[in-house]
Design a protein around this nucleic acid. Structure first.
Length: 422
RNA sequence: GCUGAGAUAGCCAAGUGGUACGGCGGCCGUCUCGAAAACGGCUACGCGCAAGCGUGCAGGGGCUCGAAUCCCUUUCUCAGCGCCA
């Protein structure tokens, strides 16, 4: 359901290689066995259903002619009982099969470096000059405290750790980034979307693997609703169960929404400030593409995102993630890491992935060019354009001035009423 | 939230217990110098090398030899009422 089931039957070695490259523990042998049994059950139950249909037809004809049908009624009864028994066994197999099948990771593109963790990531590009300061610089926590731009203590009182109140000109800068980002993508043939911030489980499962739910996603109590961790979730599901006309592809969406994340596995990391938080605003690029165009779209999306950061004058580098650092849903992921002067390091701000037909299979999103052709699964891609809190950090730290203020990047000044400094 | 009416294929839509009627749109073909018209076929998913077969009437459950159809339930849509930024 997530990978092409034909692979399981015909080319299991491809899956085996992927599991090895990703170094994940997965019971492929059980899956293969279930798949085979599943097919046998389909053949057996279909055969019985055929018999049932034939008998039903007989009964119907006899009754129409006023004849007595009681002798074949019992035949029908037996067949139905036999089928019902088989169906119970079949459900068992199907449920084991789909549980496994839904957790198998995506295939990996051949260009992806194989490695255990982020140490194997490959830097493929650097842009911009790292700012040099002739004074002692502060990190974003000190800067925002000095200028009264963030209140972390009261947020902790009201909501807990990893929450924040943005204040004053930082609120305006946050809004400016969103406005600028939306305008930017509008000019690149994206349609703007503001999605639901809560979606049901079925939709969430299309974009997220079940194991990741607990660690990442907030659930609404007593409702079949989950807070989106990114608008990617809501936008992938937007077209679920649809057959899209080939001439409409590619569909490029720019989704803007808050994002909610538990950050359950991140204890102790980035504990201070607004770098790693439970809630932030994000503009996400999401593309439904023809399979043959998806790698081209992937590069295009990366190029657009780079252009965006160049316009903001933020130095960055592009990393090609290794198998150990990449998400299970993605076949290839570029991260963009922005320079954060206060940390004297490049930090992740963008993740740009091609998911091939993995999400499309889970969500049943297909396309076709001609109505008498078979439908095909399309490809989905996603990339951050901007997760605002991290860029706020980068801007505060990189653009800080000698007298303790923050220079506003020139492309944003329009959006700030021509203000040049905070 | 209450009351009522609904949910059938890409769209519209018939079907009150016995093989899902029909129309529109779209695609392919025949015809034509070409097009239009007309006519024929195709236009959800699964299994199978194939011939074929099965499934699918919003989701789940039930009664029945047999369910789109009867019963229960959930979701959603529409109308009216109520509440509300």
């Amino acid at each position: 359901m997530m990978l092409d089931p034909k692979l399981i039957k015909e080319k299991p070695q491809i899956i085996r290689d992927m599991l090895k490259a990703r170094n994940v523990d997965f019971d492929l042998d059980t899956l293969i066995e279930c798949d085979q049994k599943r097919r046998e059950f389909i053949i057996k139950t279909d055969e019985l259903r055929k018999k049932k249909n034939q008998v039903a037809l007989e009964i119907s004809q006899k009754k129409k002619q006023g004849e007595d049908a009681s002798s074949i009624l019992s035949k029908m009864k037996n067949t139905s009982a036999e089928l019902a028994k088989l169906e119970v066994e079949q459900e068992d197999i199907e449920s084991t099969y789909s549980k496994l099948a839904l957790t198998i990771p995506n295939l990996v593109h051949e260009s992806v470096p194989i490695g255990a963790d982020e140490g194997a990531n490959k830097e493929i590009k650097k842009w911009g000059n790292i700012p040099v300061f002739d004074f002692k610089i502060n990190d974003h926590i000190d800067i925002s405290e000095n200028l009264d731009l963030v209140d972390l203590e009261r947020a902790a009182k009201v909501a807990g750790a990893r929450f924040y109140y943005l204040k004053n000109d930082l609120v305006r800068l946050n809004q400016s980034l969103i406005s600028y980002g939306l305008d930017f993508l509008s000019k690149k043939e994206y349609s703007l979307v503001q999605p639901p911030y809560m979606i049901n489980r079925e939709s969430m499962e299309g974009a997220v693997i079940a194991d990741d739910f607990e660690e990442v996603i907030y659930k609404i109590e007593d409702e079949d609703l989950y807070m989106i961790g990114t608008s990617e979730h809501a936008m992938a599901a937007m077209r679920a169960k649809e057959i899209i006309e080939g001439k409409d592809l590619p569909l490029r969406y720019a989704g803007v929404s808050p994002c909610f994340r538990k950050e359950a596995g991140a204890h102790g990391r980035d504990q201070k400030g607004i770098f790693r938080v439970h809630q932030f605003d994000k503009i996400e690029q999401f593309i439904f593409s023809r399979p043959e165009d998806s790698w081209k779209e992937h590069e295009r999306m990366l190029a657009i995102t780079e252009e965006f950061y160049q316009s903001l004058e933020i130095p960055y580098r592009v990393m090609l993630l290794s198998t150990g650092d990449m998400g299970k849903v993605s076949a290839k992921t570029y991260d963009i890491e922005a320079w954060m002067a206060g940390q004297n390091a490049y930090r992740e701000i963008v993740s740009c992935s091609n998911c091939l037909d993995y999400q499309a299979r889970r969500l049943k999103i297909r396309f076709r060019d001609k109505t008498n052709e078979d439908t095909k699964y399309l490809h989905t891609l996603n990339s951050t354009l901007i997760a605002t809190t991290r860029i706020l950090v980068s801007i505060m730290e990189n653009f800080q001035t000698n007298d303790g203020h923050i220079r506003i990047p020139s492309v944003l000044q329009n959006y700030m009423g021509n203000q040049k400094e905070i």
